[in-house]
């Protein structure tokens, strides 16, 4: 399996897209730190990139990679290899390359320039998780759709849903039911979107003063405690594992 993952990785590196992505992240991150006088403003801009660009790239890159290596997968399956192994090694190859790209592109500048190390480290952690989660999503959607256009379309829709539509719906609900106590509801809703979960995790560190007021205190009590952190990462791991497991199940019985 490791051997197979290695081939997948070589394949990805050969296409040079991932190197371009790494460079892009690196230049943007370093540029932000150089341009902004105070590093927390740069971190804020980086947060936006991580919450928007990272899921998009992970989704699209994985989907395209899957469809492009369809023939390779078919070839591998003609060998005495289990379907589970083939898909898992594909997943780990893509995942590893995306996470590495992020760690080099954003991780190094953050560790070099960020004045507040704890915010920097949580930023990197969330970035890694989001890369894995959206890769796993993309595997699920592309295993499900045979047609390439349909696969990419679904991936894009997912991205739209998690970055924009979901928050819009929540805002709508918050205003429609503003007469009711919605604090616990928001806690649950936050857990149902990995991007929101990551955002709140970082916000608790970055906007700690604002979070001490109103609902914020509730969030701080919940997500700021060690059990809350365990909850955050537990949810993140679930978000990564569930689509992958579903993809594996689908792939095992799929008529290729």
């Amino acid at each position: 399996m490791i051997k197979l993952s290695k081939y997948v990785l070589y394949n990805i590196l050969k296409s040079k897209i991932i190197i371009a992505y790494t460079l892009f992240l690196f230049i943007v991150a370093t540029g932000l730190f150089q341009m902004e006088a105070n590093s927390s403003k740069a971190i804020l801009s980086l947060l936006n990139i991580i919450l928007i660009v990272l899921p998009l790239v992970s989704l699209i890159f994985t989907t395209i990679h899957y469809y492009n290596s369809y023939e390779f997968i078919e070839l591998m399956l003609s060998q005495p290899l289990s379907r589970k192994r083939v898909l898992l090694s594909e997943f780990s190859g893509v995942c590893f390359s995306l996470v590495m790209a992020f760690c080099i592109g954003v991780g190094i500048p953050v560790l070099l320039f960020a004045t507040d190390v704890s915010i920097g480290i949580s930023l990197i952690l969330i970035g890694i998780f989001l890369s894995i989660i959206f890769t796993s999503f993309a595997f699920y959607t592309s295993v499900n759709a045979r047609d390439k256009a349909r696969g990419i379309g679904t991936a894009l829709l997912l991205w739209f849903y998690f970055t924009l539509i979901y928050d819009g719906i929540i805002l709508l609900i918050l205003f429609t039911f503003s007469d009711y106590p919605l604090e616990n509801f928001t806690l649950v809703m936050a857990a149902l979107n990995p991007i929101d979960l990551g955002r709140i995790f970082i916000m608790l560190k970055m906007d700690s003063s604002a979070m001490m007021g109103y609902t914020g205190a509730l969030f701080k009590d919940f997500f700021g405690s060690s059990s809350g952190m365990a909850f955050t990462f537990g949810c993140m791991i679930l978000w990564a594992a569930v689509p992958l497991l579903l993809a594996l199940r689908k792939f095992r019985k799929k008529d290729l």
Binding site: F175, D196, G213
Partner: peptide, 10 residues
């Protein structure tokens, strides 16, 4: 309660 959407893309 809407504080929780702060810093989101929307």
């Amino acid at each position: 309660s809407a504080l929780f959407l702060l810093r989101s893309f929307l």
